[in-house]
């Protein structure tokens, strides 16, 4: 189908500094991580680039570490490494659940967590959990290092807060205790599928009262989003079916889905209600 060879230059720097320099100096160059989004986009012509800067050999960008009060995930860590990591299973089960649902084994062995975020698809499966955990993104570039909360990273449709020459270096999640969590991904089939709607919920309760809750949604707006109004409504309330239904109703009002090849906007809205309700119930072990 594509046959023709991509006409492109290729660089494989060993250090972050070299990579940033290449990205700054080489015209129309792009970061290549796992390539599972970028190579498809280059083959189909959706994206054009003159040079690729492969970050696969930069050690600083790899690995998962438990630093006591926080977890650090290198941006170029493979999705399959996240699935197999004990640290992720123990500390970030919501993220693990979402990553496990992504692509196939062959894809997860190539694809990276940073690539998923930087590609900025509204359907990016690592986004809802990381939005819910309020992860921080460490970004390095020609002007040094800066920290951007993931909640500020997705600026508009397929746009992220990365400037020219910048690289996402790592994702940091502060540890916190949640009494329950839930991730629901609805696709057109049960496995190896992109989401029509996805919902991530973290909840913490004291007795019957919801002390804190976070709701993040994928594929239902130009970017992955948090349902802040639904969260606001729930915080401090006593759990009951009516309350959860009202929250799901509010979440449904917060989304702005579109019709696309996977589903209609109407269906997505209905599913936001249904799945938010289900995810809240699961997180609260409430039925």
């Amino acid at each position: 189908m594509y046959y023709r060879v991509l006409q492109i230059k290729y660089f494989k720097p060993r250090t972050l500094e070299e990579a940033i320099e290449l990205l700054t100096k080489v015209r129309n160059s792009r970061v290549l991580a796992g390539g599972t989004d970028l190579l498809v986009d280059l083959k189909t012509g959706r994206v054009s680039a003159e040079a690729l800067v492969d970050v696969g050999a930069i050690r600083e960008l790899r690995g998962i570490e438990d630093l006591g009060d926080r977890i650090r995930i290198g941006a170029a860590t493979k999705l399959q490494e996240l699935v197999e990591s004990d640290v992720i299973a123990r500390e970030l089960p919501l993220l693990r659940k979402a990553v496990e649902s992504m692509g196939s084994w062959q894809i997860r062995n190539l694809a990276t967590v940073g690539g998923n975020l930087c590609n900025a698809s509204p359907a990016a499966d690592t986004a809802p959990p990381l939005l819910a955990y309020e992860a921080e993104l460490i970004i390095v570039g020609p002007r040094g290092t800066r920290v951007v909360p993931v909640t500020k990273f997705f600026t508009s449709y397929r746009r992220v807060a990365l400037e020219e020459g910048e690289i996402l270096k790592e994702i940091v999640v502060r540890k916190s205790t949640w009494s329950g969590w839930s991730y629901i991904k609805l696709g057109r089939r049960s496995g190896f599928t992109l989401s029509i709607v996805s919902v991530a919920v973290l909840a913490s309760t004291r007795g019957e009262v919801l002390e804190d809750v976070r709701i993040a949604l994928g594929s239902v707006a130009p970017t992955p989003i948090r349902a802040y109004k639904a969260e606001e409504y729930l915080r401090g309330r006593e759990v009951g079916l009516g309350v959860l239904e009202r929250a799901a109703e509010i979440a449904k009002e917060e989304v702005s889905p579109i019709d696309d090849v996977r589903a209609s906007a109407w269906y997505r809205r209905e599913m936001v209600y249904r799945l938010t309700l289900d995810a809240l119930k699961t997180s609260l072990r409430w039925s």
Partner: peptide
Amino acid sequence: PVVSCLLL
């Protein structure tokens, strides 16, 4: 296992 069609 990886797909060789998405790998330079």
